[in-house]
Simulated scan of single mutants.
Amino acid sequence: MTALALLIPGGNGQLGHDLVAQAPEGSVVHHPGSRDLDVTQAGDVVRAIDALLAAAGDLSPVVINAAAYTAVDAAETDRDAAYSVNADGPRLLAAVCASRQVPLIQVSTDYVFSGDKAEPYEVDDAVSPQSVYGITKLAGESSVLRSGAEAWVVRTSWVYGASGSANFVKSILRLAGERDSLSVVDDQRGSPTWSADLATGLLELAGLVVAGGGPRSRVLHCTGGGETTWYGFARAIFEELGTDPERVKPCTTAEFPRPAKRPANSVLSPAAWAEAGLTPLRPWRAALSEAFPGFATSARG
């Protein structure tokens, strides 16, 4: 893979960590966390992109925005903070990228869809987010696509990784050690996505972009292959843990109310990704098996 000059806002999170780890050999990688780069501050964004250009030398620069407000339930009452990071941040990044002619890859979410469709969502299906989180992420998408920057939006779903903040896998592992049994929602479908696999896909896209072969579709979907429910995902985690998956019991969304509404179906079609010549991610279950040893290492650390 061709070496790149990468700016990765949110570089200390689970996706950012894997992007840094997998950056092509010889790349220049700037991966500031939120303390070092506040994407909601125009001055910070200008300085970060100009610093990348100054360090790039002969390498092609690309920004992959992994910075996001991802506390889905908290966003319902913390609207201003969610808007700042998920909408204003991408708008500022895209504006500066446009002015400096730097390509931008914006990571987005399955939660821009209502979840009412029976089949997987295509990139051009109507969007209708049902939560503040989804609304703010859609606002970020729209700003990026209208900015005039050479930009792509990559929607993903149900992301988990060993680094960074809490995620579903870490939560289930904790609960497995605390409870004899637990109930998990079985009427919401999606595609678990290992952050390391997602990073591989995003870097492949970045390489295609700088080679001049960027996809015609400016919106793409990149998730683990196949689909399951949160209940099915939890049972698979128990299997990897080597404990009885029958300890996981199915329940309905109505039996487990949350502040933010989740889509009943957020499975994303990989068609546009494949049409662009990009490598589909492996099936989610195989990815979980490979990812799992990293969670034990993380827990010991």
Rank of each mutant, 00 (worst) to 15 (best):
G164R: 11
A166H: 06
N167A: 09
F168H: 10
V169M: 06
K170P: 10
S171V: 05
R174V: 14
L175T: 12
L175M: 13
A176G: 13
E178S: 12
E178N: 07
E178T: 11
D180Q: 07
D180M: 02
S181W: 01
S181G: 03
S183K: 14
V184C: 03
V185Y: 08
V185S: 00
D186V: 09
D187R: 05
Q188R: 11
R189D: 00
R189M: 08
S191P: 02
P192C: 03
P192E: 03
P192D: 03
T193M: 09
T193I: 10
W194S: 11
A196H: 06
A196W: 01
A196I: 06
L198Q: 03
L202V: 06
L203A: 09
E204F: 00
E204T: 01
E204H: 01
L205R: 00
L205Y: 00
A206I: 07
G207M: 12
G207Q: 11
L208T: 03
G212V: 08
G213H: 02
P215I: 01
R216T: 01
R216W: 00
R216K: 09
S217E: 04
S217Y: 04
R218T: 02
L220V: 04
L220D: 02
L220P: 05
H221T: 02
C222H: 03
T223A: 04
T223K: 05
G224K: 05
G226C: 03
E227M: 12
T228Y: 09
W230P: 01
W230M: 07
Y231S: 06
G232M: 06
R235I: 13
A236I: 03
A236P: 05
I237A: 05
F238A: 06
F238L: 13
E240G: 13
G242M: 13
D244Q: 09
D244H: 07
R247A: 12
V248S: 08
V248T: 11
K249E: 14
E255Q: 15
F256L: 15
F256E: 09
R258T: 14
R258V: 14
R258C: 10
A260M: 10
A260Y: 12
P263H: 09
P263K: 10
A264T: 07
N265C: 08
N265Y: 05
S266Q: 07
V267P: 10
V267R: 15
L268Y: 08
S269C: 04
S269P: 03
P270F: 12
A271T: 03
A272R: 02
A274R: 13
E275G: 05
L278F: 01
T279G: 03
R282N: 07
P283E: 02
P283S: 08
W284A: 08
W284H: 04
R285G: 11
